[in-house]
């Protein structure tokens, strides 16, 4: 188990390194010159040249990468080209907001997805299952801006239950922000719901076929005990990993949702950065998302190992 963890950890470092390379290189191919962009079209040659020098843009690429990566590790995430302020506080603040949204979404879709998945598995191939599986597959593929805008149209504008726009102040507390969070959270949940439902369903179907479930039945345990103790204990294992992985995945999914609702989270920040070509902002927020993503994958693996005696106890 420990050796396995060590391996996984080494792999995460490798992933982060490669991902940072991808992100760094991708942002170098930007059309146009960064210094030029900052100073605008009418800046003098010398001013642009001075800024290039100041930003280290004249140095070879690998040096620039090492400077950037080294700075990132030390906590110097660069200065926003647009606002001319350090990137780190902005990113961290937006991250907090995204986390708020993500947690709320998790609380909605995980329990619901498990319940629907188990129902679908128990009613396998009957109409409830076909409906649940088909719809959940559709939800997985339904872009958040479609579901989000439809929700706004019905629940916000039509019924006026919730505000249509969630562009709250970035430092609002959870209590104040709550009504603004409901619609975005539901929107993100729809996609997540699809995943969890499908995972739970297939996991449960696999386990229901097992001989030990039949054995538990024939031991005369009450049906609910068979379901909870013998079926779900095994079938929810893969679901657990999806939930843990989902935390990182949510952050990716938030990009569109936050844009739709104007919610000041990390996703919205990246879109903003891309629109304004604010390189340090894009780099820092992408790296944070990738880091959270990989670490939640690790968390998923660890959790799986802890819950699965085959791995926990070893030989």
């Amino acid at each position: 188990m420990y050796r396995y963890l060590l391996r996984r950890f080494a792999f995460i470092l490798l992933t982060l390194f490669l991902a940072s390379l991808i992100i760094f290189t991708a942002t170098q191919f930007l059309p146009g010159d960064v210094a030029q962009i900052i100073l605008g079209q009418f800046a003098t040659e010398t001013a642009v040249e001075n800024l290039r020098e100041e930003l280290g843009l004249n140095r070879p690429l690998h040096i620039q990468y090492l400077n950037w990566a080294g700075g990132f590790i030390r906590g110097d995430w660069g200065t926003s080209l647009v606002s001319r302020t350090p990137v780190r506080p902005i990113v961290l603040e937006r991250l907090g907001n995204s986390a708020m949204l993500a947690v709320m979404a998790l609380l909605i879709y995980v329990p619901l997805g498990i319940v629907l998945g188990v129902i679908a598995a128990l009613k396998r191939d009957k109409l409830p299952d076909q409906l649940i599986s088909g719809v959940s597959m559709a939800f997985v593929g339904l872009p958040e801006f479609v579901s989000g805008l439809l929700l706004i149209a019905f629940l916000a504008i039509g019924l006026t239950w919730f505000p249509a726009n969630s562009s709250i102040n970035p430092d609002t507390t959870f209590r104040e922000a709550f009504p603004y969070l409901v619609l975005p959270a539901i929107t993100v949940s729809l996609t997540g719901l699809g995943y969890i439902t499908r995972m739970t369903r297939s996991g449960t179907i696999d386990v229901l076929r097992m001989d030990y479930v039949r054995a538990a039945d024939l031991k005369g345990l009450p049906a609910w005990q068979v379901l909870i103790r013998h079926v779900l204990r095994n079938s929810l294992l893969p679901t657990v990993t999806v939930v843990a992985m989902g935390i990182g995945w949510l952050l990716g999914g938030l990009i569109v949702t936050e844009t739709v609702y104007g919610y000041p989270g990390l996703g919205r920040l990246i879109v903003y950065g891309i629109q304004r070509q604010d390189l340090p902002l894009i780099q820092a927020s992408s790296m944070i998302i990738v880091a959270i993503y990989t670490f939640s994958n690790l968390a998923a693996d660890v959790l799986y190992g802890l819950l699965n005696p085959r791995i926990r106890v070893g030989e």
Binding site: D211, Y212, A215, L218, K219, G220, H230, L307
Partner: peptide, 20 residues
């Protein structure tokens, strides 16, 4: 089941719950 009639099946490795 389990009190007046018990059953033992073919494949012992799959008839025992791996997580308990």
């Amino acid at each position: 089941w389990g009190s007046r009639i018990s059953m033992v099946h073919q494949d012992p490795s799959s008839s025992i719950n791996p997580a308990i």
